[in-house]
């Protein structure tokens, strides 16, 4: 393995597609959020670039400073801008939604300080809905996905899913396949609750 492969953590012998993948588990969808989430980043970058251009071209107070001072200020602002821009991009790509034939995994991570993971088995999902309301979601093909759990108060909301139609249909197919297992688990839980209610019978 080369230095760069080792440095960046590539493992050519890796069999699993994500940590914790179970035997027989196939990944159907693996996606990060839609790029529309990056629009504020684009606006902030353009604004900072405009401020830098204004300072160096038109600001009389800034131009009165010595060349050394101007160089220091420009490079520091540029370094901070690069960090902000690229770290926001990396953080965007670290938020991943994985849909397998067993479950839905929501991986929320940031570069340094955050590692969150939520797993929702398909047997726990009673129903799911897709929302694509408005001009922008229709043009850019993104939307919200809402999963309803077996009890009414459990509700999971995934926003800004790209190609939400396709994800919805894929989930529908998987949901149909696991339907017998879901019925089995629900009858088992009903029996268990009945026996808990009437311990003498």
């Amino acid at each position: 393995m080369s230095f760069w492969q080792q440095f960046l953590g590539f493992n050519p012998n890796q069999v699993r597609q994500f940590p914790g993948q179970q035997p027989g588990e196939e990944t159907h969808v693996m996606t990060s959020g839609h790029w529309i989430l990056l629009t504020p980043l684009l606006l902030h970058t353009l604004l900072t670039a405009a401020v830098l251009i204004y300072l160096n071209g038109f600001s009389a107070i800034f131009l009165e400073l010595s060349f050394q001072m101007r160089f220091l200020v420009n490079t520091v602002i540029l370094a901070l801008l690069y960090h902000y821009m690229f770290m926001r991009l990396f953080n965007h790509f670290l938020h991943v939604l994985i849909i397998t034939n067993f479950r839905i995994i929501d991986v929320r991570a940031s570069i340094f300080f955050k590692r969150e993971r939520e797993v929702i088995p398909f047997t726990n999902i009673q129903d799911f809905r897709m929302y694509q309301n408005g001009i922008l979601p229709r043009i850019f093909k993104y939307g919200d996905l809402i999963l309803l759990g077996s009890s009414t108060d459990i509700r999971y909301n995934f926003s800004y899913i790209p190609h939400v139609n396709r994800v919805y249909y894929t989930m529908g197919e998987i949901h149909q396949k696991v339907a017998p297992f879901r019925q089995q688990t629900s009858t088992e839980s009903a029996r268990a609750s009945e026996s808990a209610d009437n311990p003498r019978s």
Binding site: F7, L8, G9, F10, N11, Q14, Q17, F18, P19, M30, T31, S32, H34, W35, L38, A79, Y82, H83, F86, M87, L89, F90, F93, L94, V96, I98, V107, A109, I111, F112, P162
Partner: peptide
């Protein structure tokens, strides 16, 4: 700042390679 940049790249790529994600900027 350069050190932070290297650490950020390393951390991100290590995490993504574990998940075998190849996300595209669909824009």
């Amino acid at each position: 700042s350069y050190l932070i940049c290297l650490l950020a790249i390393r951390s991100t790529f290590k995490y993504l390679s574990k998940h075998q994600v190849r996300p595209k900027l669909r824009f």
